Simulated scan of single mutants.
Amino acid sequence: MVLSASNVGVNAEFAGDVRARFESRLGFRVGGKITARKVDVGSTVRRGQVLMQLDPQDLRLSQEQSMANLRAVETNRDLAKADMKRYQELRVKNFVSQAVIDGKVAAWQAAQASVDAAQAGYRGQANQAGYATLVSDLDGVVTAIEAEVGQVVAPGTPVVRVARVDEKEIVIGIPEDKVDALRKVADVTVRLWASPTAVIQGKIREVSPVADPATRTYAVKVSIPPASPDVRLGMTATVQFSSTTPTPLIAVPLTALHQEKNVTSVWIVENGAVRLTPVQMGGVAGNQILLVAGVNPGETVVTAGVNLLKNGQKVSLLAGEPASDK
């Protein structure tokens, strides 16, 4: 075949699924035993809506203990203040020394500091008691339940997943040899398996910098417009990438490549004989290999039987395939 350079189209399709762009894994800020679950998977929730509840008994007892401690230190403070005032009156009559007054003032200040600490402790314990109720921090839909009634959970353990439904994206896996070629593609379209005739315009939002350890593919997230109709979480979708190379490239069939000692070459036909020429590959376009160096437009290459040829071997061309003459 006679080589020619052109802007080659790069097309690829990958299957993925619809996911929420924002998903929160919610958990209690305190530990305890779950006593109630108010939602199911698929439930629509509003910001501030109750999702789960813990047994509040232990938290309430701790709150009552903090309150009792606060009352005790307030009593000690009032006593220290009254004692200080009595000694101040005696000081006016010169019945006690200034050193005694200084000691009473210090005792009152220490009692006041104890009250401040007890008040802070009580407020913190009151907050802890409020954490026995788990509420949603966003409007969305419940996508998973990770704990059930009767289960004892530690602080921070995720128990409910809530996803926003206003922004969705398609998550696909791309082989490592196509990541760089598809990263800058602007023409991205999405089709749903449930509605293959509807075309949704997409945009690459994120390309994972690390390959998945199991599949060895790179996760790519393609965002779609919020107003896209009939797009539900978990649907199967196909993402198509379409573009052309910025510079003209030469495309040859895979059968034209000759591999020897980790060097890729092609056979160039000149004056009825073949010459092995190393080439540099630049990617794949369909069933053809793109060459970026080693050959020039107008040259003739062998596309069949490349493993049977030797340098300088005479060959005959099929009708309509003129050999290059240099």
Rank of each mutant, 00 (worst) to 15 (best):
M1F: 07
V2C: 00
L3H: 06
N7P: 06
V10L: 15
E13K: 14
F14A: 14
G16P: 06
D17N: 12
F22R: 15
E23H: 04
E23I: 13
S24V: 10
L26T: 10
L26Y: 05
L26E: 09
R29V: 02
R29W: 05
V30I: 14
G31M: 14
G31A: 10
K33Y: 07
T35V: 15
T35G: 08
S43Q: 07
V45C: 02
V45A: 04
Q49D: 12
L51E: 09
M52H: 10
Q53I: 04
Q53L: 04
D55I: 13
D55R: 10
R60D: 13
S62M: 13
E64L: 09
Q65S: 11
N69C: 03
N69T: 11
N69R: 12
V73P: 01
V73L: 06
D83Y: 08
R86D: 08
R86I: 12
E89R: 13
V92M: 08
V96E: 07
V100S: 09
I101E: 05
I101D: 01
I101Q: 02
G103H: 11
Q112C: 04
S114M: 14
S114V: 06
D116Y: 10
A120W: 07
A126E: 14
Q128W: 00
A129W: 06
A132E: 02
A132G: 15
T133C: 03
G140P: 00
G140F: 11
I145V: 13
E146S: 13
G150H: 00
V160N: 03
R161T: 12
V162G: 01
A163E: 06
V165N: 01
E167K: 13
I170F: 01
I170E: 03
I172D: 03
P175V: 05
P175F: 07
K178V: 00
R183S: 13
V185A: 02
R191L: 03
Q201W: 00
G202S: 08
S208Y: 08
P209C: 08
V210P: 02
D212E: 13
R216K: 14
T217A: 07
T217P: 01
A219Y: 00
V222W: 03
P226S: 12
S228M: 11
D230T: 09
V231L: 05
V239N: 01
Q240R: 15
T244S: 15
T245L: 05
T247L: 09
T247C: 00
T247F: 02
I250G: 01
V252Q: 04
P253S: 11
P253C: 10
L254A: 08
T255G: 01
T255V: 06
A256S: 14
A256V: 13
L257T: 05
L257D: 00
H258Y: 15
Q259P: 01
E260P: 00
K261P: 00
N262F: 07
V263W: 03
V269K: 07
E270V: 14
V274H: 04
P278A: 07
V279D: 04
Q280E: 15
G286P: 08
V292L: 02
G294E: 11
G294R: 04
V295Q: 11
V295H: 08
G298M: 09
T300F: 03
T303G: 00
G305C: 07
G305N: 09
L308D: 10
N311G: 14
K314W: 01
V315G: 08
S316R: 11
S316L: 07
L318C: 00
A319W: 01
G320L: 06
P322H: 03
A323L: 09
S324I: 10
D325C: 03
